[in-house]
Design a binder for these strands. Sequence first.
DNA 1: CATGAATGAGGCTTCATTCAT
DNA 2: GATGAATGAAGCCTCATTCAT
Lengths: 196, 196, 196, 196
Amino acid sequence: MTRTVGSSGPKTLKSIRKAGLRLIYEHGYEAMSLRQLAAEVGIQVGSLYNHISTKQDLLYDLMREHLEQVLDELEETLKGVEGPVELLKRFVAFHLTYHMVRKGEVFIANSELRCLEPNHYEEIVVLRRHYEKRLIDILEAGKAAGLFATVDARVTAYGILAMLTGICTWFRPHGRLGKEQIIEVYTDFVLKGLKP
Amino acid sequence: MTRTVGSSGPKTLKSIRKAGLRLIYEHGYEAMSLRQLAAEVGIQVGSLYNHISTKQDLLYDLMREHLEQVLDELEETLKGVEGPVELLKRFVAFHLTYHMVRKGEVFIANSELRCLEPNHYEEIVVLRRHYEKRLIDILEAGKAAGLFATVDARVTAYGILAMLTGICTWFRPHGRLGKEQIIEVYTDFVLKGLKP
Amino acid sequence: MTRTVGSSGPKTLKSIRKAGLRLIYEHGYEAMSLRQLAAEVGIQVGSLYNHISTKQDLLYDLMREHLEQVLDELEETLKGVEGPVELLKRFVAFHLTYHMVRKGEVFIANSELRCLEPNHYEEIVVLRRHYEKRLIDILEAGKAAGLFATVDARVTAYGILAMLTGICTWFRPHGRLGKEQIIEVYTDFVLKGLKP
Amino acid sequence: MTRTVGSSGPKTLKSIRKAGLRLIYEHGYEAMSLRQLAAEVGIQVGSLYNHISTKQDLLYDLMREHLEQVLDELEETLKGVEGPVELLKRFVAFHLTYHMVRKGEVFIANSELRCLEPNHYEEIVVLRRHYEKRLIDILEAGKAAGLFATVDARVTAYGILAMLTGICTWFRPHGRLGKEQIIEVYTDFVLKGLKP
DNA sequence: CATGAATGAGGCTTCATTCAT
DNA sequence: GATGAATGAAGCCTCATTCAT
């Protein structure tokens, strides 16, 4: 049979990534089969391999691109901002917004880490550490300036990150609280929690 | 061939559950194969079915028993305690302790929810809600008493739970901070975060 | 656990044979599992082996006993009867009656032949041949006496047997026609069909 | 490894159906394993699933196609034929010929009915009824015309069908009697058996 | 670039049977 | 004589991947 009219190279890859993201988000990497993925995209299983090299690589690519973009956008957001308090506010708002808008990518990057092969795993973990490091640095700067009380910046950072990240397990776009309210609630909580 | 000397019913089941817990914790439910599990226990794959009914049921049982025990122990811990602040302190300490000591069960109960069949899923989610409800009630009692500032007890509770639960992804028994220190850090953070 | 009160050796065997007969009749030998059988009888699978030696042997026993009884009863029925026509009438009536009353045994003996191991198969086929031989002899005696027209007694006998045996696939005890009517219809048909 | 040269889609499916037919005929549906089937065809077990959807579906397809063809050919054979006697002769000849030439399909359609899932079962039974109905109609037409004596056309039809169908359990292409002789013997028997 | 057919490994589960208790 | 736990083989089916067309 000839190929479906209108499908072309880059468009197909985009479809694969999009469908793959959703399927992994919904069922998990192990539970998603390439048959499902192909069906979702509207091609045969074998045809997937014209666009991806392996199932594992698809996961890795999705994760890496997500993390690289998150890091880029974070830098963009914090660029030029001064003072630990203001930096922290921006960080919290950014993290929450991203986790509300891109639930899928974020969830995968957290939950499917263990599905990565050792090489890929190392690489991805490094990116995650960069991100965490940014918050840790803010906390330590604030501590040094006497603005934040933290016994251990790393442990506190992990706590804050977990708290903020948690929203992508329950946030619904049209729920009781809007994005702004949620950001306000959490920003308030974090700032108070850090008070000396 | 005859059966291995010294193996007996209840002991085998316990081995299966223990090994199953560990394997699911390490690789995830989908990624754990019954071959692996049987090998770990030292029996043939088919023999597993003398003790469990299906793979799915093993997961469900592990989750249910864990949650029931958590609920029991939580009640035990909070019994007779008075005042929202003291209740909250106990809750935080209990939650953290449990999540440091029983990382496996806790992690599974959070991460493998989506692997449950609809019926099992509903049942487990109900148990989780009971647990969350306990914290929400404390927050609302504190709010009513003018002790806690919370715009939305549910959202705040989710945030706190996510923060505390997060430790089972990074806690190592012999890490930099001891259990007591960790409890102190988080209790402090939460109490300050809730200040009116 | 102790054994079910009231179950005792020979009684249990009888239960097994009865349930086995029904299950094989309903699902076929291959499709019947010893688990089903044990459940039906109300014992554990392993306990079956206190009464039967193998699944194959159960089938063989059921078939052999059935065929031996059929042969015995046939001899009893035909004993002392004289003349091919009268013998044939008796044979037809006997065969039909037996196939209406003992559908299960009869059906199994026909349909599960191929499930027998070579040794058992030979033995059972010999018994079946005895039975067929009885009809062939009657037909040939009738032919010799000028009473029946048969080009080939064996082929005719197979036809008659197939026709009569067929009823155990559709006969229902309380159907439109009663046993006597059915016997009349078929006896009539066969006698006319054999007219010179 | 690459696929066997010379094998191609439709050819493989045909092989599967042919081998499946034979194996089911010889061992029964339950007793035939897909391992055997695949080995017979010369492919891996999993490769079967490029051509069939389930084992059950293979059985259903074989049965349905057989019955549809039988019905088609029967209509072709009886088209334009007039008079119950002539119709009956044609029916008997057709049925016998078909059952001698296509023993496998015929045997399966009769003996493996109980292996069909409820849905499939209903569908197949309907087709069988169409076929039986054709004979019943002929018998009733003959009865109405005073040509046949039948107390009950349905019961008589079942008897005749069973008798004729029986040959596929013993007919061998190069046996004592040829096809024409067998047809003659049975046609003669049936016509006489129906005489008023 | 898509297809469809192939592979070989492996998935969960059931099977008949054995045997110490 | 019943039980329950074990075995090893086998059941059907799905998997990711390859590759000739």
